[in-house]
Amino acid sequence: MNELQELVKQCGVELYDTEIANENSKVIYRVYITKEGGVSLDECESVSRLLSPIFDVTPPVSGEYTLEVSSPGLERKLSLPKHFKASIGELVKVQAAELKILGRLVKADEENICIENDEGIFEIKILDIKKAKTYLEW
């Protein structure tokens, strides 16, 4: 992951996350990139052009796959402390053990997050989070 971070930085963007997805019996290796002010289509293409020949030699997954490079989107998965820190002030959905909570992310550090909603402020350990993402109210 550190090598990938350094490669992506060469294109002027930051690595947000990666994932392997199976869709319509095809394997997709997704690379999510981000930067202040948003990511352009040209930046996604630059990262893809940089990574494609490297992945031809050292594939990120075994077998056939498709490489996709994109921004994480407005409703994005949160899994690392840096994801939570960058999302302070946004609405989030979090599932941890038996707890499911929706609210505004008001604080985040390396170990915990705090979510505020009509019921109060909830502090949750990042290690206890099973699933988290930002969401938009329409």
Rank of each mutant, 00 (worst) to 15 (best):
E3P: 13
E3M: 08
L4V: 08
K9N: 13
K9G: 03
K9I: 02
V13A: 12
E14W: 09
E14P: 01
D17A: 13
N22Y: 15
S25D: 15
S25G: 00
K26Q: 14
K26Y: 12
I28N: 01
R30H: 12
I33S: 11
I33H: 12
G37A: 14
G37N: 09
G38V: 10
G38Q: 09
V39N: 07
S40C: 02
L41E: 06
D42F: 08
E43I: 09
C44K: 00
C44P: 08
E45I: 12
S46A: 15
S46C: 15
S48A: 12
R49W: 12
L50M: 15
L51M: 06
L51V: 07
L51A: 07
L51Q: 08
S52F: 06
S52T: 15
I54E: 06
F55I: 05
V57I: 15
T58F: 10
P59K: 07
P60L: 05
S62E: 13
S62A: 07
E64C: 02
Y65T: 10
L67T: 05
E68K: 04
V69L: 06
L74M: 14
E75P: 01
L78S: 03
L78E: 05
P81T: 11
P81E: 12
H83E: 08
F84M: 04
A86T: 05
S87H: 08
I88Q: 12
L91C: 00
V92S: 02
V94G: 00
A96M: 00
A97T: 10
I101Y: 13
L102D: 00
R104C: 01
L105A: 00
V106E: 02
K107P: 07
E111D: 15
C114F: 04
E116K: 12
E116Y: 01
E116G: 10
E119Q: 07
E119A: 04
E119W: 04
G120A: 09
G120H: 10
I121R: 11
I121A: 09
I121P: 00
E123H: 01
I124T: 06
I124V: 14
K125Q: 13
I126A: 09
K130V: 09
K131L: 14
A132N: 10
K133I: 02
T134D: 09
Y135N: 00
Y135M: 04
W138R: 03
W138F: 14
